[in-house]
């Protein structure tokens, strides 16, 4: 009944014997102990468990671990490269785009693919692009700003000021 799977996670290959019903998010969190990926719901609604599967953002609570066999997974722990924060990680911090931090990893992973597909998105495109990720703390304004900031950085442009703007 157990299936052997091999999954590359953040560049490292892992082999595990798993029950077919094991969810990918539980493989990541409980077998591989990468707890940066969170679980916020049971209906694929909140997006806290978003990771990249072969570069596509997906909700790891609605994918079986066996489905990731032979595939490549990137989690929030894999975003830092050579000790450098990813522009999105930097953007979230600089723009106060997180409060409790629970939705943040999923939000960042989703935004990674959003910017890969659309390097210079409009505010409307960003809002629709993160519509599968719930944040209960920030009201989203600063998440939009953070993604714009990262987009600018990744295009080699100067990002907008991170100072809060008041009317």
């Amino acid at each position: 009944m157990l299936k052997q799977i091999t999954v590359t996670v953040n560049g490292a290959q892992h082999t595990a014997e798993v029950e077919p019903r094991l969810l990918l998010v539980h493989l990541i969190r409980e077998v591989l102990n990468l707890t940066g990926t969170h679980i916020g719901c049971d209906t694929s609604s909140c997006g806290a468990c978003t990771i990249l599967l072969d570069g596509k953002s997906v909700k790891s609570c609605t994918i079986l671990a066996v489905q990731a066999n032979g595939k490549s997974v990137t989690t929030i722990e894999g975003m830092i490269q050579n000790g450098e924060l990813h522009p999105l990680q930097e953007g979230f911090k600089e723009n106060h785009a997180l409060q409790c931090g629970f939705c943040t990893p999923g939000m960042i992973m989703r935004a990674t693919e959003l910017l890969a597909n659309n390097p210079n998105p409009t505010e409307e495109e960003i809002r629709w692009g993160i519509s599968g990720n719930l944040c209960r703390c920030t009201g989203y304004n600063n998440i939009v700003k953070a993604i714009e900031y990262a987009g600018a950085k990744m295009r080699g442009e100067e990002p907008a000021s991170t100072e809060p703007q008041f009317v």
């Binding site: 990468l34 707890t35 722990e77 990680q89 911090k93 943040t104």
Partner: peptide, 10 residues
């Protein structure tokens, strides 16, 4: 939090 190193109860 931005590096997935927050420490929540689960």
């Amino acid at each position: 939090f931005i590096q997935g190193k927050g420490h929540y109860v689960d």
